[in-house]
Design a protein around this nucleic acid. Structure first.
Lengths: 204, 204
DNA sequence: CCTACATTGATACGAACGTTTGAATCAATC
DNA sequence: GATTGATTCAAACGTTCGTATCAATGTAGG
């Protein structure tokens, strides 16, 4: 009755296959049959191990987002100026996105689904927004970051990595913009872009 | 045989209903039955007027994107500094998004679908990216805009309106951030954010 | 009026969907 | 080696999907 999740576990294989297929085709576009086929599992395996397609989806999303929350927390906790720590969060985003190329899909699928986001997404959003808001506020209080509405600024900061990664993929796939945006250039660019937007020196 | 598209046309009602439902539930999540029900049309009407569900979707996306292309073109063509015209494009985006709240859904659904985007989306992307790239290059040549890679910069500029609109909706719906981001504040914020990021004055 | 054509309507079809079922198989415990 | 519980398997269920069919209806032009 050893229930360790060895890598070859059927449940683990289902989660992995689910991650790929849900990300690529969306929730409705993914079929239990397709997932079980890719996971080399029986059709009934999703019901057996997760209860339903919906609960497999939640498990997939949660397993993709949990490490992101941790990374953001970590990046925000180092010592340094608020701006440096915000840059660290941006880099943490890029690191996680490049290691988990399916991730931005889940985030945006949830955002565009029109439904109330499922719990792990809600948690992650609140956590990231809360963390960045705190850093911004700290920077604004000590004068190192320009005054501005917190929420839209935070959204602007988050939007960059997600969009650069995703649209980069899209363009290199289909856009007539050969090569798209290489990951490392994208990261440097995002850090610069955010840094300038937050600290632009007024002509004095 | 008068084939004017009066507002009560079955084809028009189908396109309108399709826009709402495709945006809200995605392509696979929307059903022909649901669309025809909402349009008060017969089940066979989609096949009859558009040939298939897929072609209705293309018609919907095209009817949503065509006006955006026009607006961007217009905003980029006015006289003014490159930065002012870029700001105009950003404002055009916001105007179009706030009048067509379903629009960002289509854009991001395409981006996250993993499939090659359908033709009107590809056209629009290329057009907007081309237009902004030209404005950026002009500004970089006359020194009014900082040097940076064109493509990621353009993506950053586009990402802002889409994300602010969408995430604003999401947060006001579910996020524990009451009110989200009011549309007019979002627009001003985006214009400032972009302006700073493009023209930050180096300490000299 | 009548004919021709465009549109609507009700119904049917086959395929794919998520889930259920119950027998078969496997691995650990006594 | 028998027993037990967990897991896999093949098959089937009922539902919903997109599309096709064809008769009924509306609407000009002759």
């Amino acid at each position: 009755m050893i229930k360790l999740s060895r890598k070859g576990d059927t449940a683990t294989r289902l989660r992995d296959a689910g991650r790929r297929i849900f990300a690529r085709r969306g929730y409705e576009g993914a079929s239990v049959r397709g997932i079980t086929r890719e996971a080399r599992a029986n059709l009934g395996a999703v019901t057996y191990h997760f209860g339903s397609k919906g609960r497999l989806y939640e498990a997939v999303v949660d397993s993709a987002l949990a490490p992101l929350r941790d990374r953001v927390t970590e990046a925000a906790a180092v010592s340094g100026t608020p701006l440096e720590r915000i840059e660290g969060v941006v880099r943490a985003f890029f690191a996680h996105l490049s290691e988990n190329p399916d991730m931005p899909h889940f985030l945006l699928q949830q955002v565009t689904s029109g439904r109330e986001p499922i719990e792990p997404v809600q948690q992650t959003l609140q956590h990231v927004i809360g963390t960045l808001s705190a850093l911004l506020q700290e920077g604004q209080e000590d004068g190192s970051i320009l005054e501005s509405d917190l929420l839209p600024t935070v959204i602007g900061i988050i939007a960059l990595p997600v969009h650069l990664t995703l649209v980069g993929q899209l363009l290199s796939r289909a856009g007539g913009f050969p090569g798209g945006v290489p990951a490392d250039r994208a990261e440097e660019h995002a850090v610069q872009f955010v840094g300038r937007a937050l600290t632009a020196k007024e002509a004095s």
